[in-house]
């Protein structure tokens, strides 16, 4: 298994999943033309990763200033996966990073906290 690095585009975020540090970062905007196609390899990578990872601390940084509705759905699905892994004993910490003046992003983070009570999600205001 290899690190997953995908450059950002106008419509898609940058992906930086690092196996050595166990830090998985997604940064940018997400409104791809075909959201399902875009996230398929990313979700697949995470699935494989969660199978292989032992009891290391996993940090997931999500800094998403803009999500269209199908991207939002993709993140809910991703969180489902993470919650399941968490309940199987993985140590997952999620940082939901947002701009102070981005109310929508903040509220989205709050939605995740409400829906995934068993996940360790922290809201972080960008400095």
């Amino acid at each position: 298994m290899e690190n997953l690095i995908i450059k950002a585009t106008q419509y898609t975020p940058a992906i930086d999943f690092n196996l050595e540090t166990n830090i998985l970062s997604i940064t940018g905007k997400s409104y791809p033309e075909n959201t399902f196609e875009y996230y398929k390899p990313i979700i697949f990578w995470i699935e494989e990763y969660l199978k292989n990872v032992k009891d290391e601390e996993i940090l997931i940084n999500l800094d998403l200033e803009y999500l269209n509705s199908s991207s939002l759905k993709a993140y809910f699905d991703m969180f489902d996966m993470l919650e399941e892994a968490n309940s199987e004993g993985k140590h997952i910490k999620i940082k939901w990073i947002y701009d102070e003046d981005n109310d929508i992003s903040e509220e989205t983070g709050e939605d995740f906290i409400e829906d995934f009570k068993n996940l360790n999600i922290e809201l972080v205001v960008k400095s």
């Binding site: 269209n68 509705s69 939002l72 759905k73 929508i104 509220e107 989205t108 939605d111």
Partner: peptide, 8 residues
């Protein structure tokens, strides 16, 4: 929820 958020 996604729909509501998206509408908003």
């Amino acid at each position: 929820k996604i729909m509501d958020r998206s509408d908003k």
